[in-house]
Design a protein around this nucleic acid. Sequence first.
DNA 1: AAAACATATCTACAATTCTCGATATATAAA
DNA 2: TTTATATATCGAGAATTGTAGATATGTTTT
Lengths: 100, 100
Amino acid sequence: MNIVEISKVLSNKTRVEILKWLKNPEENFPPHQDIDHFNDGVCVGYIQDKTGLSQSTISTYLNSMQNANLLIPTRHGKWTYYKRNEKVIKAYLGRLTKEL
Amino acid sequence: MNIVEISKVLSNKTRVEILKWLKNPEENFPPHQDIDHFNDGVCVGYIQDKTGLSQSTISTYLNSMQNANLLIPTRHGKWTYYKRNEKVIKAYLGRLTKEL
DNA sequence: AAAACATATCTACAATTCTCGATATATAAA
DNA sequence: TTTATATATCGAGAATTGTAGATATGTTTT
């Protein structure tokens, strides 16, 4: 858990929004056709549609968030689903609150 | 209080350390000769010495932290003292904890 | 096996940040 | 009122980030 690396992720509006959206996938994304739940999160395409940015940009963003351990990817067939890593998010908030 | 702007400040190790040092000026800095307390914080020179970075770089850092409302400057003669803006820091942590 | 599709990676350029030395400004000291 | 000191601002080059299109990879369907 790296405070500076996670803060870098949070220093971009779109990435902060992605994190927020993923708190309530049912409210923020259409239902998946192949999987009828959001247990593993949301596929890249839905996130991309919602941001309006290019596919490669979103993929890069999600990758950086995964590198900071904020997101957990799961592959289902040709889709990759991303969900929040609540443990790390909580740890980050805890350390910030304690140390800052 | 702008989450993205404050996160930008926190996305740099030196700036995070400055914020932490300013929690306990007595422990982290030598006593001031002209003012025998830290009510208004710490002067730029002491902060610069501690970081080892150039004067202009530190001045720029402090300015960006002030712009994000994380620090409050006070001029005493030819010195500028900077102290933490606890209100904003608390508000930031509160919003992050609630929204993230 | 070929075509179609979702995502990841590569390449590149624009924008921003990092960092410094030089210079300007404000204040205090001589 | 000249000089010294502390800090701020300017200008610039290096490094990093933002963002996109093109291409590669992996998976499913035909």
